[in-house]
Design a protein around this nucleic acid. Structure first.
Lengths: 191, 191
DNA sequence: GTCTATACTAGGATAGAC
DNA sequence: GTCTATCCTAGTATAGAC
């Protein structure tokens, strides 16, 4: 089972890369075929419902990644809060290639269609948000402060990616992450 | 000349609404035809190069709006900084329909194509950023502080729109704008 | 499980009447 | 300046051989 997943990892990663670059509507089967090296019909063999199935697989793949590399480490009480937070920033900086790669969340504009996928993404967002809230509390914030801070952090992550894409200033993302790190040390220091 | 613009305003606004809801690739001529009530060929009469021309017109239209309703008021020294900032927030809250409508910036994923449009958008962003920097300085910030604050504000606007779209929590945008207002009063108060 | 070949549909675009 | 009609291409999807 885990083996089956691994065998397809490279395929899913290729699909992921296209979707995050082109969005859902901008991604075509031909393009996916090109980049995976598989003929269209082979892709349909793996994903009978076509693009939608592929996106679902990608979103599931990303979800696993988030739980494994983001949420679990955020909740690891063995590590002190400040270290957990700087680890988080290192992880997402890698994940977004220093802000050069989009977040699926902001590139997918699915509206009312694809409700299922929306739900998956929202669940992951909530899980991430809750883990951050816990971290905030571990660092000495009270509940409402932690909630504000956590949401604001994710807002800044998404916003910085949008602005960096717009301006092509490759330091934008990093700059805002550094700023968040400083802010975090401030309130975790005065605990 | 100004009259010609006015005559087409309703048309452009309809196009704008579709593009910000569906993105560039997700927008089809048929859809634009439906929503404007014009046949496809009539749209081509107004915009010979099709979708790209339409988007260009929309971006130009938005650009005018930004200069008129955002940038000019931001630089109006007759009004005190705090009032200018709360006016700005009122304006963009209306413009984004309390966060229910997207920003073209974050929904347009044009990559390396449509360089011209990218440039237009980037120019508007820079103009807006500079006006905010000026406001920050008028409120007592020094140059680097004002730069950080201005960029961060725009990051939060874009990020809050992304997160609100994701979660469907209609208060997200408003919450973050309120938070920014408080922050602004803090540093403009201690001037 | 991958391929070639093919069918179908929707989206983009134009001609020409009124 | 808007319409009907039509065309072409690109995108989606399937059949069936290997």
């Amino acid at each position: 089972m885990a083996k089956a997943i691994n065998e397809n990892t490279a395929l899913i990663e290729a699909l992921f890369d296209i979707f995050r670059n082109h969005g859902y509507e901008g991604t075509t089967i031909s393009l996916l075929s090109e980049v995976t090296g598989l003929q269209k019909s082979s892709l349909y063999h793996h994903f009978p419902k076509g693009k939608e199935d592929m996106l679902k697989a990608v979103v599931g793949f990303v979800s696993e990644k988030i739980h494994q590399h983001v949420i679990t480490p955020l909740l690891d009480e063995e590590v002190n809060p400040e270290k957990r937070f700087s680890n988080l920033i290192a992880t997402i900086t890698r994940f977004y290639s220093d802000g050069r790669k989009n977040c699926l969340l902001n590139v997918l504009n699915l509206g009312d269609t694809k409700v299922e996928i929306n739900k998956l993404q929202n669940d992951d967002y909530i899980a991430w948000l809750n883990a951050l809230i816990q971290l905030g509390k571990d660092a000495g914030l009270d509940e409402p402060e932690a909630k504000n801070w956590a949401e604001r952090f994710l807002v800044i992550v998404e916003g910085a990616l949008v602005i960096q894409r717009l301006t092509n200033d490759l330091q934008t993302f990093e700059r805002h992450m550094e700023c968040e790190k400083k802010l975090f040390s401030q309130f975790s220091g005065q605990q």
